[in-house]
Amino acid sequence: MNFPDATRVFLNQTGEISRFAFRFFRQGLRTRYEWQELLRQCYIVGYKSLPLAALTAFIMGLVLTMQLHPTMVYYGVEAMIPAMVGISIVREIGPILTALIFAGKIGSSIGAELGSMKVTEQIDAMEVSGTNPFKYLVVTRTLASVLMLPVLVILSDAVSLYGSYLGINLYEQVQFNLFFKQILDSLAYQDVVPAIVKTFFFGFAVGIIGCFQGYNSSKGTEGVGRSANAAVVVSSVLIFILDLIAVQVADLL
């Protein structure tokens, strides 16, 4: 069959990434687990993106509430604001926003780090030093992303809702307890669980794409830059695609 060049490149990449992800599962199960490196990566990955994720989440909660307020007052349903904000943040805005920030911050740094390790032969050096570089670098970083993104999302959701609480208090006096009680009452099990479950997949996408781009970086310094860039672009797009799939799957359940 004759595909146009762009299609062929796309399919090729998709195939390569799938193979890389498959290798992650195969290697990740083998013994000699790199616990120490995994813990270190969890700390780095979570800690590095926490301030940025919290800041954006806070602003998003605040701004969302401020923009909703006039319209809700116009229709006389301002009492619904906590429920509306709660559902939109927990189900969609929190996960997707945090995942995108995470892709920008962690995806690019993994891509650049592994890319520069690749071009300066550090990955080869690990291999001759009795270390499986795929397990030491790729498995630990990807797992750290999978584990830390859900944590970040939960924290961001909380910060975001607090921002929303402050936002609503710019217009009227609302009790803290009442505000959060309204939010919790409006959230059902099927709002929260799928939203958290999908963040594991977002985390996997960011980790594995960042590692893939870095690990397959081409020679030279511009190769490293390209890896970091591609890591962000591809994982961001993938996050949206996964989100689309997640909403369909959640509807079925």
């Binding site: 520069s116 390790m117 300066t120 032969e121 001759v128 030093s129 009795g130």
Partner: peptide
Amino acid sequence: RMKVGFLFQSNALYDSMTVRENLEFPLRRH
């Protein structure tokens, strides 16, 4: 590989580790 040393063209020192950790790496990993 423990019996064969390799000096890389680009040195391949681990940027994120100190000199001590760089030297310890093969000792601990093998």
